[in-house]
Each structure stands twice: as structure tokens, then as C-alpha cells.
């Protein structure tokens, strides 16, 4: 017996870069930043990750925590379309919306095999192709009984671990430096997850919105460039 809080296996599996949910092909704007010369080494990567954590990371953490909270308490199916629509409204870039839905769909496909639940089926039925943080929240809240803080931590971590891995692949960066840039964000990640957990019980329309215009622009530029020339990542 132990009184220590434990991390569920589902939480670890969802945060693992080997989780087969389609995340490996997304760079979160990093490829575009590399292409422009904004990120070319470990120092700029650290700055990029800091910005991404406080922008996209904080935003997705809020919705993952809210989804985990809702799934654990058991909500009516129409709650899922509300939550999904509110995140849509807080994601101005169509390219980022598409990237979030693509990863949501992939995570749902994988998640149904691993942690089936009624909430997951209802999420799929009401939204069709839900946003990624909401899928993570439902998987952890309903199927695996992890906390809103865990759900928020997973997506906050993924918001930086994906771009860091992309930087290693695109720039041949030292993987130890890239990993250290991620783990240096420990305090920020914990604060963002705790903050997201505090608002997890709010009505969807009252959830906070974080904006990160630079990431929105990078995502849009990425799409535009992809039509003209080579891009290796889907976002």
C-alpha cells in the first residue's frame, strides 16, 4: 500500500512518442520555423518550445482537463459537441484546426482499441472527428480514470515533445540537447497543468483561451509552402 499519487499506465502510454496516434508526422510549426531560419540550434529551440508550451500547450491543457473532468462525471452527449466547438473557436488557424482534428482522429482510433468507453463512443458520434486534447481527456477521464491534471500534463508535454523530436529530425540536433530543452520546462508544464485542472469544471463557453498568433501564422505558412514545395511534416 502506498499513499503516493501514482501515474496511470494510460497516462504514460498517451504521452509516449511511440503511441500510434499519428503525432509523429506533426511538428507544431517547427518545420516552418526551421525553414525560415528562426530555429537553427538548441537555444532557439528552447525559446520556440517555451512559446509553444505557453500558447498551444496551455490552450490544449485547458480542454484536455475539462474533457477528463466531464468524462469522469458523466455528461450528456451534447456536452461533447459544445466542448469541441469552444476549442474550435479558440483555434483561429484552419491549418492548426486540421492538425488537431487529424491527431484527434488518430488518437481515437488507437484509443478505442486500448480504452473503449461509452463516453468515447458518444464523443465520436457527436463530433465525428474530435479535437486531439478532447480525445485525450476522454480517454483518460472515462476509460482509464486518470485526473484532469494528468490529461492536461499529457497534452502540454506533447505540445513540446513533438516539435523537439521534429527538430532532431530536421536539423540533426543533438538529441540530448533537444530532450534537455523539453525537460527544462518542468515548472512551466506543472503550473500549466495545475491551472488547467482548476478550470476543468467550468462550462465550455467559460473556459480560458490562450492565443499565440505567431504559431497560427507559422501553421498557415506551412500549409501554403506545402502546396509550392516540399514539407516533410503534416503541420
Amino acid at each position: 500500500m502506498t499513499a503516493m499519487p501514482t501515474v496511470s499506465l494510460a497516462t504514460l502510454a498517451l504521452a509516449d512518442s511511440r503511441f500510434p496516434g499519428g503525432g509523429h508526422a506533426h511538428s507544431g510549426g517547427l518545420e516552418e520555423a526551421v525553414h525560415r531560419g528562426t530555429v537553427s540550434g538548441p537555444e532557439q529551440l528552447a525559446e520556440f518550445l517555451h512559446g509553444r508550451l505557453h500558447g498551444a500547450g496551455a490552450q490544449t491543457a485547458v480542454f484536455a482537463a475539462a474533457a477528463a473532468h466531464a468524462a469522469a462525471r458523466g455528461v450528456r452527449p451534447d456536452h461533447w459537441s459544445l466542448l469541441d466547438a469552444e476549442l474550435e473557436a479558440r483555434t483561429p488557424s484552419p491549418a492548426q484546426r486540421a492538425a488537431s482534428r487529424a491527431q484527434g482522429r488518430g488518437t481515437l482510433r488507437s484509443g478505442r482499441a486500448a480504452w473503449p468507453s461509452r463516453a468515447l463512443d458518444e464523443l465520436l458520434a457527436t463530433t465525428g472527428s474530435p479535437h486531439h486534447p478532447i480525445v485525450v481527456g476522454v480517454l483518460l477521464g472515462a476509460g482509464a480514470s486518470a485526473s484532469p491534471t494528468d490529461a492536461a500534463s499529457v497534452v502540454a508535454y506533447l505540445s513540446v515533445s513533438g516539435p523537439a523530436s521534429a527538430a532532431v529530425r530536421l536539423l540533426g540536433l543533438d538529441p540530448f540537447a533537444a530532450n534537455a530543452a523539453v525537460t527544462a520546462l518542468r515548472a512551466d508544464t506543472e503550473r500549466i497543468a495545475a491551472e488547467a485542472a482548476r478550470t476543468a469544471g467550468h462550462r465550455p463557453e467559460n473556459l480560458p483561451g490562450a492565443s499565440s498568433p505567431a504559431l497560427d501564422l507559422l501553421a498557415e505558412q506551412h500549409q501554403r509552402h506545402h502546396r509550392e514545395e516540399v514539407r516533410l511534416f503534416a503541420s
Partner: peptide, 9 residues
Amino acid sequence: RDDITANLD
């Protein structure tokens, strides 16, 4: 092989 999501989509 490891993550066939994009291909299945």
C-alpha cells in the same frame, strides 16, 4: 509500420 494513422486516414 509503427504508426499507420496517416496512411489509414
